[in-house]
Amino acid sequence: MDTVKESVFVPAAQELISVHEALALSQYMAEPVFEEDIVPRKIMEERKAGVNTYLKALSLVLFFCIWQIISYLNAVSLWFNPVFLPSPVMVVQTGYAYLQDGTLLNHIGMSFYRMLAGFSIGVVIAVVLGVLIATRRDVDNLVSPILNMVGPIPIFAFLPMFLIWFGIGEMSKIALIAYATFVPLITYIIDGIKNTDPILIRSARSLGATQYQVFTKVILNSALPHIFAGMKISLALTFSALVVAEMMGASSGLGYIIVNAKNWFKMADMFLAATLIGLEYTLFYGLLTLIEKRLFRWKKAGTDRAIEK
């Protein structure tokens, strides 16, 4: 019995060993990989971030290429009226022509100015009022019910009133843009201030900080990330307000180009203005993100950092 068992078992064992050896051999052959310089994953990821920038740029290039190809194919095979979809090249040509006669820079400049003025005024008012509401019970009781009632009304419902109150000039537009920035932002500011960790306030007080110093050095610092998040979210509404304000009762600006182009059926002009609005928004958003990264270097949180890839 024993001899039979052995004779069956031994060849199988030999086979096993040979497989094992083969594995070891393959590992040995793969060894040069480990001789490479060891680069910490954190550094590798920072290098990859550079690649990410290229990928992001590539995505935009790809978008314009596909747009160009579709409008070109449409011009050739006439799926629909080619006037409806001008190609990016046509849009750039239109833009170049306006750049030559000097009108484009004026329009861009006006939009930029209105947006910057309205956004800044909105942020300043939101910060001042937000701080008062969050720190003073009496102001909170007086102002919050009004804000809660008026806040949810779509801001564009106010445009005709703003036009009547502030006139057809710059005032009404800037006021609407400021209001559009203010409404979503103030919630974030109040939340940010109220969410300050009480233990940080205690520790600051035990280090000798006065009430005022606690506010400037602890509460504001703690609320700042919330304020920036709020600013980024308000920005979309700020731009909507800008375009709407310029579409109704303006003689310059990117929104005006769109309305004017509609009257004269200049499709390329519309696309040009829309693209420029998109670019201006991206620029502002990028600027805010850049400032954020600079200011909040101390923040190490985020889903990306949970698990190394």
Binding site: I199, R202, S203, A204, S206, G208, K299
Partner: peptide, 16 residues
């Protein structure tokens, strides 16, 4: 007061 310094269980350092 700063005359009574406190060390907390959750360090309570200012993260910024």
């Amino acid at each position: 007061s700063e005359q009574r310094g406190v060390v907390f269980q959750q360090h309570a350092l200012f993260p910024w």
